[in-house]
């Protein structure tokens, strides 16, 4: 049975940075991930990552990948962990395809779009319901769409669609939109935008594809005839598989300032953790810190060769 020094779960900014540090420490390690770049790949324009006055999310993600590839790091993809558990001196990772063992783990699995959890959402996923406005937006050219959410990513999606859709609805659970004022002002100047606050989507309906949504706005039921439903209601941490780890009320893994979780040898970094402020540059810093902590853990513990 192969036992790695370290397994890094996830290859977003935190996981990739941890991998670069692990390669430089010459650890025997592997990265297991479902994709490369994580949320950075989905970001629009980035103007606050030091060293780049301007770079797009996908471009920065490609830079990260190139940096990782320059070390010849072993990446197992696409695989996702479904369970991790400590077994005496080693940690077992069960993925959707295989099993792996290591002495230390860094969980850097980030976050995933939050689901609406309403009737029709699953059925019409890909058939009008999308979680990546940046990706699929252009396919909805000439069609009416509803954006669910009121934060920056929702407003970003709305601004993308105002120029190509006849009608853009925004359904927001909050009493007023919470995104940046600059974006709200831009939307107010668009004649084809209609905003519903204190509103929720009750169900999504259609035939082969979405034909509309039923919403409840200020306790009044309404139907909106739309072909696209863009869900932009925030993110959930991908930590469900890490059942033994302590989490906060948002489901984020609790770490100390050394990125140590409540289980020895298990570290976590980036947006999946309780660390405040979800920023690419913070995730990178946390990834490096987690790797240095894991390295310290590995070098200050002796392991018998088998167990």
């Amino acid at each position: 049975m192969k036992i790695y020094d370290l397994i890094i779960l996830g290859a977003g900014p935190a996981g990739i940075t941890a991998a670069v540090y692990a390669a430089r420490k010459r650890l025997d390690f592997v990265v297991i991930t479902k994709d490369i770049g994580g949320q950075a790949s989905w970001s629009g324009d980035i103007e606050n990552y030091t060293g780049y006055q301007f770079i797009t999310g996908p471009q920065l993600a490609i830079k990260f990948q190139e940096h990782m590839d320059s070390f010849g790091i072993k990446v197992i993809m696409p695989q996702s962990a479904i369970e991790i558990s400590r077994q005496e001196e080693k940690i077992k990772v069960i993925t959707d395809r295989e099993e792996y063992f290591s002495r230390a783990i860094i969980v850097a699995t980030g976050k995933n779009p939050r689901l609406l959890s309403v009737e029709g959402e699953k059925e019409y996923k890909g058939k009008g319901v999308t979680y990546c406005a940046t990706c699929d937006g252009p396919v909805f050219k000439g069609k009416n769409v509803v954006i669910v959410g009121g934060g920056n990513s929702a407003l970003d999606a709305a601004l993308q669609m105002v120029n190509i859709s006849p009608k853009v609805y925004i359904v927001d659970i909050a009493p007023k939109l919470t995104g940046d004022e600059v974006m709200i002002q831009k939307l107010k100047q668009s004649s084809n935008v209609e905003v519903f606050n204190n509103a929720i989507v009750k169900k999504i309906y259609g035939a082969d594809f979405v034909k509309g949504v039923e919403i409840e706005a200020n306790s009044e039921i309404k139907e909106l005839a739309v072909q696209g439903v863009f869900v932009e209601i925030g993110l959930n941490p991908n930590a469900g598989f890490a059942s033994g780890l302590k989490k906060n009320e948002s489901g984020e893994i609790i770490v100390d300032c050394y990125n140590q979780t409540n289980i020895e040898g298990l570290f976590a970094a980036g947006d999946v953790t309780s660390v405040p402020e979800k920023q690419i540059i913070i995730a990178c810093g946390e990834g490096s810190k987690a790797c240095l902590s894991a390295f310290r853990y590995l070098s200050t513990h002796s392991f018998s060769s088998q167990a």
């Binding site: 994709d35 490609i62 940046t134 990706c135």
Partner: peptide, 10 residues
């Protein structure tokens, strides 16, 4: 594909 879609690039 679309220009801004990361999975398309990949």
């Amino acid at each position: 594909s679309t220009a801004a879609c990361p999975y398309c690039h990949m």
